[in-house]
Amino acid sequence: MKQVEIGVIGAGWWACAAHIPTLVAHEAVKSVAVVRPDQEGLDKVLSHFKLEHGYLDAKQMLAERPLAGAVIASPHVLHAEHALLAINAGLHVMVEKPFGTSIAEARSIADAAKAKGVSVMMPYGWNYRPMTEAAHRLIRDGYIGEVRHVVAQMASALADLFAGEGLVEAKGALFEPPASTWADPKRAGGYGWGQLTHGLGALFRLIDLDPVEVYAKMGNSDAGVDYYDAAVVSFANGATMSLSGSGTIPKVRGGYQIDIRIFGTEGMLVYDIERARVEAYRHDGKSHIEQLPTDAGDYDSASPAALFASLCAGESIINPANATVGRRATEVLDGMYRSARSGRPEEIAP
């Protein structure tokens, strides 16, 4: 297998916990170069992973290193800037969620990648699970007919993170997630940008529809970012969605919930990571119940970076979280936040 060098822009908490270890261990990766804006933190990353190439500035790394791809894991509000720098340098990119913090940013990333002929991936971990691919296949092949209505909810045990108190599960990590990224309303903090985007990523792997209007209400944490999200979404084909998000599953229970019910002209599909369920039922009496192990709904933190490495090395891959998936998720979130502020439905322009 061809070996390549991959850059990581934003060597912080999650990049160091998931992406960099996966890349360093991958047979297609010859070396990893990293960017962090503080010298002390950069030295810590280089020492911990025994890396040779570290930079304080992304532009310098892109100019000096012979990269095949770049992982964008900087703070939310910098994703678009850093993704466009890498794309315009001719690199494949894996962009951490969210896929930009506005519709304009998300569309600029997708358009630039298309113009440059490079691939965009997102590390929506559940999109890389076989149960998601099974549900995608059933809907793609027309098992439930045309999508007419969706009920989708996601919940997480992250009340501390979105309250600006840090994350208890990250104590002792190389770096901890900063409140400035997760709990600052001026820097795309909150449950929508930080977590509900995962549920939307899974949804848009399952359905091939553009959102056109969103009406939303939110309930905020003490830090002023959303803990709770409730939205009604309309799609281009006239279908509707009831969307819900909550960041306050009690820690004693822990875990994640993503429960999506998709109703079509010929039947319905159930996708539930908590209970590892993919089930489809039709009006003609036919049904399909996917046989899944009990851990089928567990989050996959390694496969995205591993698959991205294979892509950068020239391997043919199936990309379950491409630019279209990322764009649509951001379109819903952008409309949701605008609607919560305005108190009225907000359009998503074609």
Score class of each variant (00 low, 15 high):
121 M>I: 02
233 V>Y: 00
88 N>L: 10
224 G>D: 02
237 N>T: 01
22 T>I: 11
111 D>Y: 09
67 L>Y: 07
92 H>G: 07
309 A>I: 00
287 S>A: 15
1 M>W: 07
92 H>E: 05
285 G>S: 06
22 T>A: 15
278 V>D: 03
95 V>Q: 01
145 G>Q: 05
326 G>T: 03
299 Y>F: 14
80 A>V: 01
106 A>W: 07
190 G>D: 01
144 I>T: 05
104 A>H: 12
232 V>K: 11
276 A>T: 10
115 A>H: 12
300 D>E: 10
286 K>H: 13
2 K>R: 15
273 I>E: 01
173 A>F: 15
54 G>P: 07
221 S>H: 12
194 G>A: 09
85 L>Q: 13
74 S>E: 06
65 R>W: 06
195 Q>I: 09
113 A>T: 02
265 T>A: 08
226 D>L: 00
210 D>F: 13
312 C>Q: 03
271 Y>I: 04
187 R>G: 03
138 L>Q: 06
214 V>W: 07
219 G>A: 11
159 A>Y: 11
49 F>G: 05
141 D>Q: 12
143 Y>I: 04
59 K>D: 15
339 S>M: 11
117 G>D: 07
322 N>K: 03
267 G>C: 01
159 A>S: 14
229 D>F: 10
73 A>R: 04
100 G>K: 07
94 M>L: 13
35 V>Y: 04
9 I>H: 03
350 P>F: 14
297 G>I: 04
65 R>Q: 15
145 G>I: 00
20 I>Q: 06
323 A>D: 14
47 S>M: 12
281 Y>C: 03
65 R>K: 14
136 H>C: 08
219 G>V: 12
306 A>K: 11
57 D>Y: 13
121 M>D: 08
117 G>S: 02
251 K>R: 14
269 L>W: 04
203 L>R: 07
192 G>E: 06
15 A>V: 11
325 V>E: 06
154 M>C: 15
185 P>D: 09
126 W>L: 14
34 V>E: 01
349 A>E: 14
269 L>M: 12
242 S>Q: 13
103 I>E: 15
241 M>S: 07
142 G>I: 10
108 S>W: 01
196 L>N: 11
301 S>L: 11
82 H>W: 02
83 A>M: 10
180 S>Y: 08
203 L>N: 04
131 M>I: 08
